[in-house]
Nucleic acid binder design. Structure first.
Lengths: 152, 152
DNA sequence: AAATCATGTAACATATAAAGTTACATGAAA
DNA sequence: TTTCATGTAACTTTATATGTTACATGATTT
């Protein structure tokens, strides 16, 4: 199955935005992400609706951060994306009449639930500000070598 | 993304087989699972290769359990399926040159790794025998009402 | 007011992987 | 030798993320 990378993508965008004042057009961000502007608008829509970012039309428009990075966690961002399913495996059918299926589902659901809860919990422990700090560290050691954020 | 239900499916098959002596043809199992015989053969192939089940051709042939159910865990079955990916979400790109992406990936990978490890650990704690016990309990309470394993 | 710029969004195309299906080869039992 | 059952390749279908095109909406500049 193809893995959903929207969370990774939108975090990437947010971190880029945190490095310098905005606003940023979808086209600019798309270039940095090597993707299409429409994809940017798509993954940002939920964040905008929840007020984490703002978008402006017209000249000088684009995307702007509108939240305290220290107060927004990866969990918040994940939820803004619509809480897409976290697990690649699941039960064959829901609401099975077959007792065998019920036994199997009960066992698997327990494990699935634990894993999902753990993931969400971990996401909740990491703020965008922490990601920014980590990035600054990496940038710091690169700067000594005169390289940019996108340098190879 | 479409969820991979092969683990759920193959466990369902094994539990059905544990309820009565075999052998079972792929067609019989497929009917109980409401799917295609080829799908059964496909998900059983790994188990056969690892010796958990046997398959025989010709008249009176079919699938037979060939392991101690108390010694095979959901983890073993999962591995027999080829250890398909557990998570539906992932990083945008691997081996990114972009430092921003490195920061994002580092944060996410930590959480992903923890969740995968937890899932595998939980799988390792559950044996097929335990699933069978659970099923027998469910069957027991149904029998009092004169219903079969597939009764609605 | 008109031209330009940028988002918003629908519609369609592409890519990937699971699941389902068909066809046929292989081999065992009646 | 016929029948049955697995083994497997090849193809189709389905679902979903991702990519793309087209155009409407609205803000800014001239």
């Amino acid at each position: 199955m193809k893995r959903d990378s929207r969370l990774s993508g939108v975090l990437h965008v947010l971190l880029h935005m945190a490095q310098q004042p905005g606003p940023f057009t979808s086209e600019t961000l798309a270039k940095a992400m090597d993707t299409n502007p429409v994809v940017i608008r798509r993954i940002m829509a939920g964040l905008r609706d929840l007020g984490y970012v703002r978008s402006e039309k017209g000249h000088g428009g684009g995307w702007t951060l509108a939240c305290d990075l220290a107060k927004v966690t990866l969990r918040d961002v994940y939820i803004a994306l619509g809480s897409p399913s976290l697990l690649a495996i699941g039960n064959r059918t829901e609401a099975p009449g077959c007792l065998v299926e019920q036994s199997v589902n009960a066992a698997l659901d327990q494990a699935f639930g634990d894993a999902q809860a753990l993931l969400l919990s971990r996401f909740g422990e990491v703020t965008l500000a922490m990601l920014g700090d980590d990035l600054r560290k990496r940038l710091g050691s690169r700067k000594l070598q005169g390289m940019s954020a996108h340098g190879a």
